[in-house]
């Protein structure tokens, strides 16, 4: 049976006369001895001959004679549509070829410029605006911050000075003459600074700070004008002035407000950055 399989594979080439002579002879010998293969081969050959020998069905004579006449109008339509397309193509080609080269270069350059402006406006304008806003805010904040920092330092120095005087034990009998010259000098400095600082604290948010500086200025002015180092009654005056004006309370409140406003500025900046992103 394996033998038959080998010969069955040769059937196709043999049927079309493409089998080598040697193989063809071998196949013929096998077909003479094997009835199954012989019947199969002959059956295939007969089927094939049935189709190969079949004559073509001739077309209708009139159809064939008028073949071109029927076809020609359709082909002329194709030609016309082609010529319309070609005309359009050549019109465009002429339109572009009639202009000198530099006009295209100029037009191209202008187009790129316009596109650049458009892209710049569309994509970067908002960023520039936000950048400007940030810069303005920064400038404003910077000037505010500078005066704020100055005022804070002013308050701190005043606080230290006042705390030292207010907490001084003036009731003790063993009080020795105290040299208040340094306190006087510092107070005079602080009073001078207060005049400048009040001008700088012009922002509405700094109104309370400005008032505090003014209150401190009044008390510091008293200290700066001490005449007798042995008469300590002026210290009581300073104490009562500090108490009446609630200087330490105001200083503490101001410290708390400064801390809050600093965190607000940070939040505002990060918000602007996030929007930008």
């Amino acid at each position: 049976m394996a033998n038959c399989k080998t010969y069955i594979k040769m059937f196709e080439l043999s049927l079309y006369g493409e089998l080598k002579e040697k193989d063809e002879n071998e196949l013929n010998l096998h077909l003479e001895t094997c009835k199954t293969c012989s019947e199969e081969y002959n059956s295939l050959k007969e089927t094939l001959e049935l189709f190969q020998n079949r004559e073509h069905v001739e077309p209708d004579i009139i159809f064939m004679e008028s073949f071109w006449d029927n076809l020609q109008p359709e082909l002329e339509k194709v030609n016309n549509s082609k010529s319309v397309f070609d005309n359009l193509k050549s019109t465009f080609a002429n339109l572009f070829n009639s202009q000198p080269k530099w006009t295209y270069q100029l037009a191209g350059g202008l187009a790129i410029l316009v596109m650049g402006i458009f892209i710049g406006r569309f994509f970067f304008n908002s960023n520039v605006a936000t950048e400007n806003t940030i810069v303005a805010i920064n400038n404003e904040n910077n000037s505010v911050n500078v005066s704020q920092v100055k005022a804070e330092r002013y308050i701190d120095r005043s606080k230290v000075l006042l705390l030292g005087l207010v907490n001084m034990d003036t009731e003790s009998e063993n009080v020795e003459p105290i040299n208040f010259q340094q306190q006087k000098r510092i107070s005079q400095q602080l009073v001078t600074e207060a005049a400048v600082l009040k001008k700088e604290l012009s922002a509405p948010s700094q109104r309370r700070l400005k008032e505090l500086v003014s209150d401190l200025e009044v008390i510091l002015l008293q200290i700066a004008n001490i005449e007798s180092e042995y008469d300590l009654s002026w210290i009581d005056l300073v104490r009562s002035g500090v108490d009446k004006r609630g200087i330490f309370l105001k200083i503490n409140i101001q410290k708390m407000q400064n801390t809050n406003s600093q965190s607000d500025v940070k939040d505002e900046r990060s918000e602007i950055k996030n929007k930008n992103i």
């Binding site: 073509h56 077309p59 073949f67 076809l71 082909l75």
Partner: peptide, 26 residues
């Protein structure tokens, strides 16, 4: 003629073969 024969063999129908052979050339 060759186109017609092929069209006829494929379609086994004279009318189809005629239509197809015209269409092929278009």
């Amino acid at each position: 003629k060759l186109v017609y024969y092929l069209a006829y063999d494929m379609m086994n129908n004279r009318e189809d073969a005629e239509d197809i052979s015209q269409e092929v050339f278009i």
